[in-house]
Simulated scan of single mutants.
Amino acid sequence: MKSGYFGPNAMFAPWALWQQMAQIAWDSQAVIAMRTAGLMGLVHQDAGEPQRMVQEKADAANEAMTAALRAAARGARADQVVSAALRPYRRRTKANARRLSKSS
């Protein structure tokens, strides 16, 4: 069977999106906890972390919008467009969790 709108990939798309969002949520909670501890002075944190925290939100939103628009322009399915939009957030939350856990 061809992997178009009714193929096996499309059938498991909701599960893949849920998994992607769950991992982002898990890592986001860890990042929030580590940053909060840093802002409270409980762990060492770079002086530029609050600025970085704000700037990365705008950068991630810009990357997500660009990725979603590119996927939609290629004629991707809706789940593929959402997945493309989530990828920049996933990459950033994963990198932040890794970076902040090393510094604490």
Rank of each mutant, 00 (worst) to 15 (best):
M1L: 02
M1R: 05
K2L: 10
S3V: 00
G4F: 12
Y5G: 13
F6V: 13
P8C: 01
N9I: 00
A10K: 01
M11I: 10
F12T: 07
A13S: 14
P14T: 10
P14N: 14
W15R: 06
A16T: 09
A16Y: 09
A16P: 00
L17V: 13
Q19N: 05
Q19H: 05
Q19A: 04
Q19P: 00
Q20M: 11
Q20A: 00
M21N: 10
Q23D: 06
Q23M: 13
A25E: 06
W26A: 07
D27C: 06
S28R: 08
Q29D: 01
Q29E: 04
V31R: 03
I32F: 08
M34V: 00
R35M: 02
T36G: 07
A37M: 14
A37S: 14
G38L: 03
M40T: 01
G41M: 06
G41I: 13
L42P: 00
L42H: 05
L42W: 00
V43L: 04
H44L: 06
H44K: 15
Q45M: 15
A47T: 14
A47N: 02
G48H: 07
G48L: 14
G48W: 06
E49N: 01
P50Q: 14
Q51W: 08
R52K: 12
R52V: 00
M53P: 02
V54K: 11
Q55E: 15
K57C: 03
K57S: 07
A58L: 13
A61K: 13
A61H: 07
E63V: 02
E63N: 09
A64P: 04
A64D: 03
M65D: 09
A67H: 10
L69T: 08
R70W: 00
A72R: 02
A72C: 00
A72V: 01
A73W: 01
A76S: 15
A78I: 01
D79C: 10
D79W: 13
Q80I: 01
V82S: 06
V82D: 03
A85G: 14
L86H: 04
R87N: 04
P88N: 11
Y89R: 07
Y89M: 09
R90M: 10
R90T: 03
R90H: 06
R91L: 14
R91P: 02
R92S: 06
R92E: 11
T93I: 09
K94N: 10
A95W: 13
A97W: 02
A97G: 00
R98E: 11
R98N: 10
R99F: 11
K102G: 04
S104K: 03
